[in-house]
C-alpha cells in the first residue's frame, strides 16, 4: 500500500495519541520474552544470529518471506512475512550486508497472527533473512534482494 493512500484513507483520525503512551513502554513489561538489544549493534549477520539465539536455526518452508527481487529504492523495501509454524512467538529480520544487520524483531501474543508487513532500508544488494521462534526453537528462510539504489549511506 502506498503511503499516500494511507494518509487519504485515515486523515488525522487519531489525534488523541499522547494519552496512551505513558504506561506502556516500560521495557520487558509486555510479553514474556525480552529482547537482547545488543544484537542490534552486531556488525555481522553471524554475530546478530548468535546474539538472538538463532545461530543454529533450521531451514523451513513454512515461513513466507515476500520481498521484491529487485528493489529500485533501498530506502524503503517492502517486505511481508508470514509464519505458518504453529506456536510462533517471535519473528526477526536480518539484512546480511547492512552495516547493522538485525533490522527488527516482533514478539506475538496468542491474539496476534505471526505475520507483518514493514518497509526496510537496504544499503546494497543482500540476503534478507527471517528467523521464526516457536517452542523455543528457531527456523529460518532467506531470499536475495537486488538493490539498485542503496538506502543507508549518503
Amino acid at each position: 500500500m502506498h503511503r499516500r493512500d494511507f494518509l487519504q484513507a485515515f486523515g488525522s483520525a487519531t489525534a488523541l495519541a499522547p494519552l496512551v503512551v505513558a504506561g506502556l513502554l516500560s521495557p520487558g513489561a509486555a510479553l514474556a520474552v525480552s529482547f537482547n538489544r545488543a544484537a542490534f549493534d552486531a556488525k555481522t549477520a553471524a554475530d546478530a544470529l548468535r546474539l538472538i539465539g538463532a545461530a543454529s536455526a533450521e531451514a523451513s518452508r513454512d515461513i513466507l518471506l515476500k520481498a521484491p527481487e529487485v528493489a529500485e529504492n533501498g530506502a524503503a523495501v517492502p517486505i511481508e512475512v508470514v509464519s505458518s509454524i504453529p506456536g510462533t512467538t517471535r519473528l526477526s529480520v536480518l539484512i546480511d550486508k547492512n552495516p547493522l544487520p538485525l533490522a527488527l524483531q516482533f514478539n506475538f501474543a496468542p491474539e496476534a497472527a505471526a505475520r507483518f508487513q514493514a518497509k526496510l532500508r537496504m544499503a546494497e544488494s543482500s540476503r534478507l533473512r527471517v528467523v521464526a521462534m516457536a517452542g523455543g526453537k528457531h527456523y529460518t528462510v532467506f531470499r536475495e534482494v537486488k538493490v539498485t539504489v542503496g538506502g543507508c549511506g549518503d
Partner: peptide, 28 residues
C-alpha cells in the same frame, strides 16, 4: 508496542534498518 483492550499483544524491537516514516501492518 501494540495493545488490544489495554493488553500488550505485539511487542517489537526496531533497529536502524527500518525505513523513514515506518509503515507496519499486523493481523490480530
Amino acid at each position: 508496542i501494540l495493545s488490544l483492550n489495554g493488553r500488550p499483544v505485539i511487542e517489537s524491537a526496531l533497529g536502524t534498518a527500518v525505513s523513514a516514516n515506518p509503515l507496519f501492518a499486523f493481523q490480530l
